[in-house]
């Protein structure tokens, strides 16, 4: 995936731009001086723990909530003034699928088609796209969580929106359904739409995001393409080392130019330079360590997230998928 320009200074007439946006609810500062920019046609993942301000950000983008401070531009429009037009051009999948249980899947889609004023023949096409067309005649109360999410996704694209806002789209799904939904989102992202996906699950951003926006306490702690962020926050090479007698590895951290952190039992060893690795291994072997694994680590988003968190501080740990 080609990294895209992710600066808030990108063309404000396109995409989504929030500049110094704040929103409080009583004493709670849900979004605090948030500045992000999502260029048109790119996919941004709002990544952060529950309460980081992701849902509020989505609501601010559609104009459902008004900011207390700051400015927002969506497709060159101000949600405060042109909210109806923005919402007409946006598709939103809320964290709860928001469907009428006692009605059929088709009834739910017909309702949305009428609201967005689109022909009803788009219903079957959208349903087929998300593999839910065979179940449209059934009441939604009989749907599984995965089917509900697919129906909500189908509903969100009925009117062929330019912007897709997906708020925790895989919440409550089993791994198989979650993967299917993520594949569908990848497919949507490939159609040139501007997509913002809010999630607290790190692996969901993997392979989708042109830009990851790490959120904490209502603010963007860091933003950029995963590769940019890796270059910024994971500059030093990392090697995974494991041994039969792990206890002998505990002093590794005391060596000059070496920083070791434990991860699922194995050690993640950050080195100032890879040139020190052969000597270090030789010394470990001499000390009686029976090494079982030495592997250079490819920077995954998960590792990147925790490294960013460690360097930036403050951000509470996210939920790690089992």
């Amino acid at each position: 995936m080609t990294p895209k320009m992710t600066s808030p200074q990108s063309d404000p007439s396109e995409g989504i731009h929030l500049n110094g946006v704040s929103r409080t609810f009583g004493d709670i500062r849900a979004v605090d001086d948030l500045t992000i920019g999502v260029p048109a046609g790119s996919v941004a993942v709002l990544l952060g723990p529950n309460g980081a301000g992701k849902t509020t950000t989505v609501r601010l983008i559609t104009g459902s909530l008004r900011p207390d401070a700051g400015s927002i531009s969506v497709l060159g429009l101000d949600p405060g003034k042109d909210g109806d037009e923005i919402r007409r051009r946006c598709g939103v999948v809320p964290p709860k699928p928001a469907l009428y249980d006692r009605l059929t899947g088709r009834d739910n889609l017909v309702y949305a088609a009428r609201i967005w004023d689109v022909p009803q023949d788009t219903i079957d096409e959208a349903a087929a796209r998300f593999g839910i067309d065979d179940a449209l005649h059934l009441k939604v109360s009989g749907y599984s969580t995965g089917m509900r999410t697919r129906l909500a996704l189908a509903r969100s694209v009925l009117h062929d929106p330019e912007v897709l806002l997906l708020d925790e789209p895989t919440a409550g799904l089993d791994p198989e359904s979650a993967r299917a939904v993520l594949d569908l989102i990848r497919e949507l992202a490939g159609t040139g739409r501007t997509v913002i996906m809010a999630t607290h699950l790190l692996h969901e951003a993997e392979g989708i995001a042109d830009q990851v926006i790490l959120m904490g306490a209502g603010n963007a702690r860091a933003a950029g393409h995963p590769l940019e962020l890796a270059a910024r926050y994971m500059k030093d090479p990392v090697v995974i080392i494991d041994a039969e007698n792990r206890d002998l590895l505990k002093d590794l951290d005391s060596r000059a130019g070496v920083k070791a952190t434990s991860w699922n039992g194995a050690l993640h060893v950050t080195l100032e330079s890879l040139e020190t690795l052969p000597d270090m291994i030789s010394e470990l072997v001499t000390d009686g360590v029976r090494i079982t694994r030495i592997e250079p680590m490819a920077a995954t988003l998960e590792h990147l997230y925790f490294e960013m968190q460690r360097q930036l501080g403050e951000v509470p740990p996210p939920q790690v998928p089992s």
């Binding site: 609501r59 559609t62 459902s64 109806d84 037009e85 919402r87 007409r88 946006c90 939103v92 809320p94 964290p95 709860k96 699928p97 928001a98 469907l99 009428y100 249980d101 949305a112 609201i115 967005w116 806002l165």
Partner: peptide, 14 residues
């Protein structure tokens, strides 16, 4: 309570 409020809030309905 059904979550439809969120759907309506994000819709182009005034």
């Amino acid at each position: 309570e059904r979550g439809i409020g969120e759907f309506l809030a994000h819709s182009p309905l005034s």
